[in-house]
Amino acid sequence: MADQPTATERFLQGILPENPVYRQLLGLCPTLAVTNGMQPAITMACSVAFVLICANVVISLLRNLLKPHLRIVIFTLTIATFVTIADRVLAAYLYQMSKTLGPYIPLIIVNCLIICRCEVCASKQSPFIAASDALGQSLGFGLALVSIAAVRELLGTGGLFGYQLLPAAWPDWVIMVLPPGAFITLGLLLGLVNWYSARKSGGSI
C-alpha cells in the first residue's frame, strides 16, 4: 500500500490539516465545557492524549485477533478502562482539578474523537503508526483546546493562568467564561480557521 501515509505524515496531519476540533468537529463536548480556563483545558488535553495513545496502541495490537462485530465492544472496554485509570490518577494527585472537571473526565469514554481514531487508524495499522497518529491527533486536540481557552480566559477574566495580563481597567467579559461564551468563541474561531484555510488555498471552499 504505497499511498498509505507514513507515521510522520500521520503525526503532522493530526496537528493542523486534520485538526480534530476545527477540521473534523470531533470531541466538541469537552472542547466547550472545560475551556473556561487554561488549567482545566490543559489537564483535559493531557487526559485525552493519555487515553487516546494507550487505546490506539492496545487496539492496534489486537487488530488481527478480533472479528469485526466484536470490534466496537472491545474499543469501548479499552477506552473505559484507560479513562477510569486517568480519572483515578487525577483524583489522587490533582484533587481540586479533578473536582473542577467533574463528569467531563468520564465523558472522555464517549468522546467521538477516540472511537473515530481507533476505528479509522488503529484497527488497521501497526502499533507504531497508530501511536504517532494518536500523538498527532491529541496534539491537535490540545492545540484547539488551548486556543479556545486562551481567548475565553483572557477576555473573561483579563488574564491567563490567573495572572492579570490586560490593564486593570479591562471590564471582564464574564459571559466568555459562561456557557454562551464557549459556543460563540468556538463558532468564531471555526469561521476564522475556515476563512484562513480558504485564503491559503487560494480558492473558495
Binding site: G187, G191, I205
Partner: peptide, 23 residues
C-alpha cells in the same frame, strides 16, 4: 451567511445566543 461561517460555525454562534437565552 458569510462563506467561512456556513455550516457548523454559524450553528455554534447561534447556539451561543440560545445558551444566553436559557441563562
Amino acid at each position: 451567511v458569510p462563506e467561512p461561517f456556513k455550516g457548523a460555525a454559524i450553528t455554534l454562534v447561534v447556539g451561543g445566543i440560545l445558551a444566553l437565552a436559557f441563562m
